[in-house]
Deep mutational scan, measured.
Amino acid sequence: RPMNAFMVWARIHRPALAKANPAANNAEISVQLGLEWNKLSEEQKKPYYDEAQKIKE
């Protein structure tokens, strides 16, 4: 299954978030990633939607 825009973004940002929160488990990191993603504007998300579309094609 191809990655969606959030997954493209999260793949880039997960390592830094995990390093900054070494005690957090994957579920907690995923929740935090979701919160951070939701704070982004549509303009900030656009490159990730574009990349996800390329992956689908």
Rank of each mutant, 00 (worst) to 15 (best):
E28Q: 10
N38P: 01
L33K: 01
M3Q: 07
R14W: 13
K45S: 01
G34I: 15
K19C: 07
A18D: 03
K46I: 05
I55F: 09
L17F: 14
Q44T: 04
M3T: 10
Q53G: 05
Y48V: 01
N4M: 12
N21V: 02
E57Q: 11
R1W: 14
M7I: 10
A27M: 11
N38H: 06
N26A: 13
F6S: 00
A52N: 02
N38T: 08
M3K: 06
E57F: 08
K46T: 05
V31E: 09
Y49T: 04
A18R: 15
V31D: 05
S30Y: 15
V31P: 01
L35N: 07
R1A: 12
L40N: 01
M7E: 14
N21W: 12
L35T: 06
K19H: 07
R14Q: 05
A23T: 12
N21A: 03
S41L: 04
A52W: 12
N21K: 04
E28R: 05
V8H: 04
V31S: 07
K45P: 01
V31L: 11
K54N: 07
E51G: 03
N4C: 15
P2H: 14
P22C: 04
L35A: 08
N4W: 10
I12G: 03
E42M: 13
N21Y: 13
Y48Q: 00
G34Q: 15
E51H: 07
K54H: 08
L17R: 03
L33Q: 01
E42R: 13
N38S: 14
V8W: 06
A24E: 03
M3N: 08
F6C: 04
K56G: 07
P2N: 13
E57T: 09
I12C: 07
Q53A: 14
P47K: 06
K45C: 01
P15S: 09
A18Y: 07
Q44L: 07
K46R: 10
E51I: 15
Q53Y: 08
V31M: 12
K39I: 04
H13P: 00
L17E: 01
A20L: 12
W9K: 00
A27G: 06
E42A: 14
A16M: 15
K45H: 01
Q32H: 04
A18W: 07
E28G: 03
L40A: 01
Q32D: 02
M7T: 07
N25E: 04
P2M: 12
I29E: 01
L17Q: 03
W37H: 00
L33M: 05
S41H: 03
P22W: 03
A10K: 03
A23I: 07
A24Q: 04
Q32A: 11
S41M: 03
K56I: 13
K45E: 01
Y49F: 11
H13C: 06
A27P: 03
N21F: 13
F6T: 00
W9S: 00
Q53M: 11
K45A: 02
M7V: 06
V8Y: 11
K45Y: 01
A20D: 05
Q32C: 09
R1F: 13
I29D: 01
N21Q: 06
N21M: 11
N21H: 11
M3W: 12
A18T: 11
E28W: 15
N21E: 03
K19F: 08
A16G: 08
N25S: 15
E42Q: 11
P15D: 09
P15L: 10
P15H: 10
L17V: 12
A20E: 07
I55S: 06
R11P: 02
A10F: 06
E42F: 15
A20I: 07
A16S: 09
A10E: 08
V31Y: 14
N21T: 06
I55A: 06
L17N: 01
S30E: 15
N4R: 06
K39M: 08
I55D: 06
N21S: 06
N25H: 05
A24R: 06
A52K: 02
Y48A: 01
L33F: 01
N21C: 08
L33D: 00
K19N: 05
N26E: 14
N38W: 08
E43A: 13
W37R: 00
K54E: 06
K45R: 10
N4G: 07
R14P: 00
K39W: 04
I12A: 09
K54Q: 09
A16N: 07
A10Y: 07
A10G: 02
E57W: 06
P22T: 03
A24N: 04
I55G: 05
I29H: 02
K54A: 10
D50L: 13
P47N: 03
L40H: 01
A16D: 05
P22K: 04
K56A: 14
K19W: 07
D50T: 08
A24D: 03
L35K: 10
Q44D: 11
R11H: 09
P15C: 13
L17T: 03
K46E: 04
K56T: 13
Y48D: 00
P22A: 04
N26Q: 12
Y49N: 04
V8R: 06
N26P: 13
H13F: 12
K46L: 07
F6R: 01
A23L: 14
S41I: 02
E36K: 09
A10W: 06
P47Y: 10
H13N: 09
S30G: 08
N26I: 09
Y49Q: 05
W37A: 00
Q44S: 07
K39P: 00
Q44P: 00
K39D: 04
M3C: 14
P22G: 03
M3R: 07
K45I: 02
V31G: 03
I55W: 08
K39S: 07
I12P: 00
P2S: 12
A23Y: 14
A18V: 15
Q32Y: 10
K54W: 08
E36Q: 11
P47F: 07
I12R: 08
S30V: 10
A52M: 05
A27C: 12
E36N: 07
K54I: 08
V8I: 15
N25D: 10
Q53C: 06
E36Y: 08
S41T: 13
A24M: 15
M7C: 14
A20H: 06
Y48W: 14
A5D: 01
L35R: 10
R1L: 12
M3H: 09
M3E: 07
E43T: 08
